[in-house]
Write a protein that binds this DNA or RNA. Structure first.
Lengths: 337, 337
DNA sequence: AATAGTAATGCAAATGTTTTCATAACCGGG
DNA sequence: CCCGGTTATGAAAACATTTGCATTACTATT
């Protein structure tokens, strides 16, 4: 109704008390007499007053926001992570300031700055690999910061996530132990994506660890079912077909599976396919996908706990490893003779 | 380095100018002499000063944030929408304050309040169906508000999206025109989800419009591949099998397709399957999914344009309809005789 | 060299809260 | 009825900026 937005002074006047009392009635209700509190509440409702967090924030009071900077939102797995992080964080009253940088570490730096301008109470980044500027900025501003998704003992900041090297290693040994020797790796671009790079490294080490020196064909593919499908179709058209296709993530694996279905190639009879991630849907794919489970929901939830604890100072910053787990389903089998 | 965070006064002192000049050097650089600007910049860098948007905001300056409240993030289609909205919005310098309410309109109201406390410059909600409290709040605070995803002429606020009734209608007439008479509708829960409800209504109207009174079996299923797969498996075990399964969205359709693959039922030979949404991956599914395209990316981008225009006052608020489009691929065919 | 005009800067008030300290109101006991 | 002790409230300073107005410093013109 009123053109000007109601402020605490207007409420005070309407309730015939001082601004201080109104403020107290919000922040320390027990300090104000129930009857006046009621009067204030009525005034608040009548004027449609909404507290101004910006004004509180300049008093050193927490802004109630946590910055979350991700490479991209539009990916099954990050969506799941963001969801669980956001849920857990909201429970403690925080709101998320979200931004995505599209795998550019420079943009990530700029976004981090912007988050700090907004005086977020904490900030979470995906992965371990960030611009040194970003690390310096975070260190200097001493805003609680947390790395999500990856885990490494020697990370420069506390981190909550899975060891992606280990995830790759798990599929490497699995595939090698099934006797596969001609293997194609279908991975997303490695640039600015430490997760993928580590998985690939783990994979090759895992394959080698099992003895022999398997023939590993590497194939870089954008993150999409369509691209993976296309890539695998080409792969199978080549003279020397791989007997196993290991994919950098489940989406790529889905693409591979569709390509093979289209070509009438039997999975896992003729070729083995594996993913990494265990996204929604992989379990119920036909055939069900063998993959490595990265516990996205758990990571989001635990990360939220960790960062809120860092903010409130309730607990010291503490890294947390949520181990990946090999899940053998119906797309992997012994290599054909 | 410094324990206390640097403020504009510290910068002013370090650059031996007044705070006003520092402020101006940020906001109206043309008003300050290049040489002093340089001096200030050096001081800023040396002290690691970061502007405090909270302090600016209480001057009526925009907060530079836009609130986005969605039912859930962890869904292919919303993730895509959030991504494109966020990209477009970031381009104009805004940052997104994100929250999800899990299909509870009460929580949505509470979140809206919280966003207003943060003094977002604008606020976007998904769908047309909201608590009257929410509408009143928005009206009273006269914060620019926008409804995303759905389109309706008579919406109580400007909206940018697709007509979901029409989307349902498109598949209804398509399926009916193929001669199907025994049809199963696999839809998510309708409660608090006007999109799904409108699609279903459109579907039944579309089916009827084509003459005859087809036998429509309705089946409510949570939003997941697993649940849909299960539901369709049960559906096909029943004595009287449907010849077409129309799904409320593509994820459900994927589940249906997997169930049918598992049962060895031919698609589209024995049964037709349709989705709604045209998510990433539907095109490359094997067989490729017949669906209705809801242009999520376009909606996000146009919505971002619209709301930033509302905020800056550059253009009057304007609803925008992005029409859904029937995409016939490989999962739909004439009903078997 | 004085002056007008402009460019650059500083001063101080204002923004919407919270909080410390001070004061006023109240309550029961002597 | 007064007094000590709570309990409830108010006044004013503080928070980190921006901005209108005033002032100072230049520049160019006469």
């Amino acid at each position: 109704m009123n053109d000007k937005k109601a402020d605490i002074l207007a409420v005070a006047k309407a309730a015939r008390v001082s601004p201080s009392t109104v403020s107290r009635s919000f922040n320390h209700p027990d300090l104000v007499k129930p009857s006046t509190r009621k009067r204030i509440d009525r005034a608040v409702r009548r004027l449609g007053y909404i507290r101004n967090r910006a004004a509180q924030t300049i008093h050193g009071i927490r802004s109630g926001t946590i910055g979350l900077i991700v490479p991209t939102i539009d990916q099954a797995i990050f969506a799941e992570l963001i969801q669980s992080f956001s849920d857990a964080v909201e429970e403690t009253g925080f709101t998320i300031l979200l931004a995505s940088h599209g795998y550019s570490l420079d943009r990530e730096y700029a976004l981090t700055r912007k988050m700090l301008e907004h005086r977020v109470d904490g900030i979470a980044l995906i992965g371990l690999d960030h611009a040194t500027d970003t690390y310096e900025l975070l260190a200097q501003q001493n805003t609680p910061a947390l790395l999500l998704w990856n885990y490494a003992e020697d990370a420069p900041l506390p981190c909550v996530g899975s060891d992606n090297y280990r995830a790759g290693h798990l599929v490497g040994t699995h595939v090698a132990s099934l006797g596969h020797r001609h293997i194609a790796a279908v991975f997303p671009p490695l640039h600015g994506n430490d997760r993928a790079a580590q998985r690939l490294q783990g994979l090759t080490d895992g394959l080698r660890a099992h003895g022999g020196d398997p023939d590993l064909l590497q194939r870089e593919t954008p993150y999409s079912v369509a691209d993976a499908k296309q890539a695998v179709a080409e792969l199978m058209a080549a003279p020397r077909r791989p007997t196993a296709i290991v994919c950098g993530n489940d989406v790529l694996a889905w693409g591979a599976l569709h390509a093979l279905a289209r070509l009438g190639i039997s999975v896992p009879g003729d070729v083995t396919v594996t993913g990494i991630g265990d996204f929604h849907g992989s379990q119920d794919f036909e055939p069900a996908l063998t993959t490595v489970r990265i516990p996205a929901r758990a990571i989001g939830a635990r990360a939220a706990e960790t960062i809120t604890a860092m903010i409130t100072g309730d607990a010291p910053a503490q890294s947390l490893a949520l181990p990946p787990e090999l899940i053998i389903r119906a797309t992997s089998a012994k290599a054909p003779a």
